[in-house]
Simulated scan of single mutants.
Amino acid sequence: MTEPETARLGARIRAYRNMRRMTVRGLAVEANASPSFISQLERGHSSASIGMLRRIATALGLTVADLFNEEDELGHRVLRRTARPELRTAPGTRKYLISQRPLQNLEVYAGELDPGTSTGDEPYAHGESQEILLVLRGRVTVWLGPTGSASPQVLGPGDSVEYRTSIPHRVANEGDEPAEVIWMISPPTPA
């Protein structure tokens, strides 16, 4: 890589790290590198092997290709409903990624839950971010907290709940009609 390319790569790594609210030390721990190496890489004073770039990308919730993509700075990106990537979920539920990769400051999902379905039998947690669940249509019950001590909240259209992603949570549609929800997470949780 040329010196300007190395500098631009370092600047993108620093920008993604800052978007994730990670410290240099935090990224170094996650990528199994030294903080001084990460600092030198971000300032364009060092280059990294493909293996190291993979570890850094994984720690940031990105792909190696995302680290080299300079086109994400265009300012706007359109995603048609029919082109939304679908994530594998529990039977009777569908979850679609709305925020386009590489994820920057915000991670957004649209969800559909058929009557009698849920995000799973057990509450789950992921990362240490802020999450908002907004109900667009139908009614859902949200459990926040570990199994056995979770407090259920019934939400209808226009209702929302905000919580840390580190708190175990679960969403169920116990009604007779389909439910549609949006999850918004900031900063994006690691992959």
Rank of each mutant, 00 (worst) to 15 (best):
V140S: 04
E122I: 12
I98H: 06
E128Y: 11
I98M: 15
G145K: 05
R94F: 06
L103G: 12
L133E: 02
G120R: 06
R137N: 15
Q104A: 14
R164M: 12
P146L: 08
L106C: 08
L134E: 04
Y96C: 05
T141L: 00
S160D: 02
L103R: 11
V142D: 00
H126F: 12
S149R: 14
A150F: 02
V161W: 00
V108P: 00
L106T: 03
S118D: 10
D159R: 04
D159F: 09
G111Y: 01
G158D: 04
G148V: 03
S129Y: 09
V154A: 13
T165Y: 00
S129M: 06
T165M: 09
S129F: 08
P157Q: 13
H126C: 12
N105P: 00
V108E: 04
T117G: 07
L133S: 01
T141M: 07
E107A: 08
V161M: 04
G158F: 08
E122Y: 00
E128Q: 13
R101M: 11
T165D: 05
V108S: 04
L155I: 05
P157H: 05
S118I: 10
P157K: 11
E122T: 10
E131M: 13
Y124M: 07
E131R: 09
I132F: 06
V161R: 01
T93R: 07
G127R: 11
R101Y: 08
L144S: 04
V154Y: 02
G138C: 01
S151K: 09
S166K: 02
G127E: 06
S166A: 15
P168Y: 10
P91E: 12
R139M: 10
V140A: 03
I98K: 05
L144H: 06
L155W: 12
P115W: 02
V154E: 10
G145N: 01
D121A: 15
Q153P: 01
G120K: 10
D121G: 15
D114I: 08
A110D: 11
R164L: 15
S99A: 15
V161I: 13
G158K: 06
L97A: 11
S99E: 00
G148M: 08
A110E: 14
G127S: 13
P146T: 10
L113V: 05
Q153V: 14
H169M: 09
P91L: 15
V108D: 01
T93H: 09
V161Y: 04
S166R: 09
L144P: 08
P157M: 15
W143K: 04
